[in-house]
Amino acid sequence: MGRFTSRAAGIVAGLLLTGCLGRTPAPVFYTLTVVEPTVTTAAGGADGPVLAIGPAILPSYLDRPQLVSRQGNRVSYAQYSRWAAPLESELLRVMGANLGSLLRTNRVVVYPAEPRLPVAFRIRLQVEQFDGSPGGEVVLNVRWAIARPGSKEPDVIGASEIRQPVAGSEDDDLVDAHSQAVGALSREIAERIRSLSD
């Protein structure tokens, strides 16, 4: 009895020692980047339409900090490559910046901030898929709605599936492809908004 106890204690101590001695590598954090050039007030952005971006609904599998890579139906999470902020807020932030540039306006309000001005267009997103694989492609599958205030139903409801090839096999390339995909989506939506405001 006493022998067994001492042996078990020895095992546990050894395990603890090895565990404590092992070092967890530091994760790498990524953000999405804005692909369009920023429009400043001097460039006439002050008079543009008021855009309210958000909210965006993301599938649960994306609601985590790890980068998601997909092989067919199999997804895996990169334990040490992470989004610096929740993907939803990153997506909206970059979308807002892109749309502001494309529609030449500074008056962009991104969820959860409240618009103080009469909103011209409100854009809502429902993301179906937003992942990719290093060396493969990033797929951004989104349903979106553009609504003008006062109308009960959205003015435009659309769906986009953007496929963006990943240039390399690194996580950096995968993130860059994500940013490009968001830029492409922004351009599509900006196009529709322009057609609505004309």
Binding site: L15, L16, T18, G19, C20, P25, Q79
Partner: peptide, 8 residues
């Protein structure tokens, strides 16, 4: 991981 930490 509680004992050994995150895997490399």
């Amino acid at each position: 991981a509680l004992v050994r930490g995150k895997e490399q």
